[in-house]
Design a protein around this nucleic acid. Structure first.
Length: 491
RNA sequence: CGGGGCGUAGCGCAGCCCGGUAGCGCGCCUGCUUUGGGAGCAGGAGGUCGCCGGUUCGAAUCCGGCCGCCCCGACCA
């Protein structure tokens, strides 16, 4: 909780208490609020608008790669969840179960979906008979529930919104390609839209999805140097196909089990965005995700001026919209310009245009970009025409600047030298390292021991493009290096 | 589930130790004046003090029980 009075003036600085800062930003930027139900949240219009922009971009990418949307029901028979052994073990502790309905106890309880593999593959089993029915490439947008012990807005709530893709293929190779292709889609989305550059790669056995053969993941580094698992893509093998009888006849007429993948990203991405770009003033929303990219703040003395300024402001907004910019004008008259400046900065609007009588007289407006290059002026006066004509470039430049800054932070917090002891890993993490590369023997006991000692886990066995130039020879916690891994403390 | 903290106006809090008709700041409403970095003045609305029980002439305050929320650790998108 903030010790600051009034709840409106200033945030706890990130350096003082990152966790408190995060909670304050989320609430003061009006992204979300606590709901009356423990562990769940209300997503407010500003936060939901950001999510909608994420959805639209991802949905386009899924469609472009051959997927279609469908919707499967919220309630899943308990017996379905219990079908796949690792899957039950993974999810049982966090299931919410419906035992009564219509005033009667149900014969078989339903679980509120924690994920939909079981119901979806049960349905696929009905729909797929022949290799000609494959691949089946569906996605669904929906909500899921996992009864979490400890929750945080966006990062971990009992109910959250996400998309889950589920595919069925005739061969293992094809399923493997799909899982990797989607990982690439996620990576591209995170870089291009959220300006949040993740590491991608494979999960260790201990960290993989319950029921998967292999899990791939995007891991992003937050400003407090903790990793956030931002998206996962799973190669499910034939595990679910076997349990749900998802079979097809191949070209030779033999019956085979299909190969599946599943993959998802959630509203957690909004939390990732907050922790990647936010500053001590408040939220910073990358232009491509901002529900409003440009907010015009009129400044006026008296009714006549107000009318003139509003008229000019409307013209600028129209001009911007004509350029495809999401622009709006803040017409509230009871609020002082200064108060509006603070409010829109707190909410992370990428660009503010200030328009007062002085500007009007000169045919100008003042442009203030939310995040500037070091040393660059905070505000710039320019002609109305320049405000409009230059806006897309200005937004693109900000988007690029945010990505560059995030990459620079990630690289600065990445340790790639040799690390040979558990103590050394702990010291590195304590002294400001985020991602630490090292060798690993592949022994899960080592991973567990390191976790106990340092609270760090293997976030990812990095894909080719994220591996060190020369593979680390030494292992944290002993053994001979079979592969390179990336350690971090994680959300 | 373990540890810590907190429940008093929409929000943030004081009052509680030492019982006596509930207060402050912000916000909100009305009016006037204001507006280039969180406006000013005046007037006003708003509370079963988390719930149940006990002690007492009298409980926000003391005692007992319950409930809820937040934060920190073990599991997780």
């Amino acid at each position: 909780m903030s010790k600051r009075k009034g709840g409106k003036r200033g945030l706890t600085p990130r350096a003082e208490d990152f966790s408190a800062w995060y909670n304050e930003v989320v609430q003061q930027a009006e992204l979300a609020d606590y709901s009356p139900v423990r562990g769940s949240m209300v997503i407010r219009p500003w936060g939901y608008g950001i999510w909608e922009n994420m959805q639209r971009a991802l949905d386009d990418m899924f469609k472009a790669t051959g997927h279609q949307n469908a919707y499967f029901p919220l309630l899943i028979p308990m017996s379905f969840i219990e079908r796949e052994k690792e899957h039950v073990e993974g999810f049982k502790p966090e299931l919410a179960v419906v035992t009564h309905a219509g005033g009667k106890e149900l014969d078989e309880p339903y679980v509120v979906r924690p994920t939909s593999e079981t119901i979806i593959y049960a349905m696929y089993a009905k729909w797929v008979q022949s290799y000609r029915d494959l691949p089946l490439l569906l996605n669904q947008w929906g909500n899921v529930m996992r009864w979490e012990l400890r929750t945080r807005l966006f990062l971990r709530t009992s109910e959250f919104l996400w998309q889950e893709g589920h595919t069925a293929h005739a061969t293992a190779e094809e399923a493997e390609d799909e899982a990797r292709m989607i990982l690439g889609v996620y990576r591209r989305f995170m870089e291009e839209w959220i300006a949040m550059p993740p590491l991608t790669g494979l999960k260790s056995e201990a960290e993989k999805f319950a029921g998967a053969v292999r899990s791939y993941a995007c891991e992003a580094l937050m400003q407090d140097r903790k990793a956030l698992q931002a998206g996962t893509s799973h190669m499910l093998g034939q595990n679910f196909a076997r349990q749900f009888g998802l079979t097809f006849q191949n070209e030779e007429g033999r019956e085979e089990y299909a190969w599946n993948t599943s993959w998802g990203v959630s509203t957690r991405l909004v939390g990732g965005m907050v922790m990647t770009h936010g500053d001590d003033v408040g939220l910073v929303v990358p232009p491509k995700l901002a529900p409003t990219q440009v907010m015009v703040v009129p400044i006026a003395r008296g009714d006549d001026q107000a009318a003139a300024v509003m008229k000019k402001g409307d013209e600028i907004v129209e001009g911007l919209r004509g350029q495809g910019v999401r622009a709006a004008i803040d017409r509230r008259l009871h609020m002082s310009p200064g108060a509006k400046f603070f409010e829109w900065e707190r909410k992370g609007v990428p660009v503010r245009v200030e328009l007062g009588p002085r500007d009007l007289a000169r045919g100008e407006a003042v442009v203030a970009v939310r995040v500037n290059e070091d040393g660059a002026p905070r505000k710039e006066a320019m002609s109305d025409a320049q405000v409009v004509a230059g806006m897309n470039d200005r937004l693109d430049a900000l988007q690029a600047r945010l990505l560059e800054a995030a990459i620079a932070r990630r690289e600065a917090a990445t340790h790639r030298g040799e690390v040979s002891s558990v103590d050394e890993l702990g010291e590195l993490l304590d002294s400001g390292a985020g991602f630490v590369h090292s060798g690993w023997s592949g022994d899960p006991d080592v991973e567990a021991r390191v976790k106990d000692a340092t609270r760090a886990t293997i976030r990812v066995i990095p894909g080719e493009e994220f591996r060190s130039a020369s593979a680390p020879a030494r292992c944290v916690g002993g053994g001979s290096a079979q592969m390179e891994v990336v350690w971090a403390r994680a959300y």
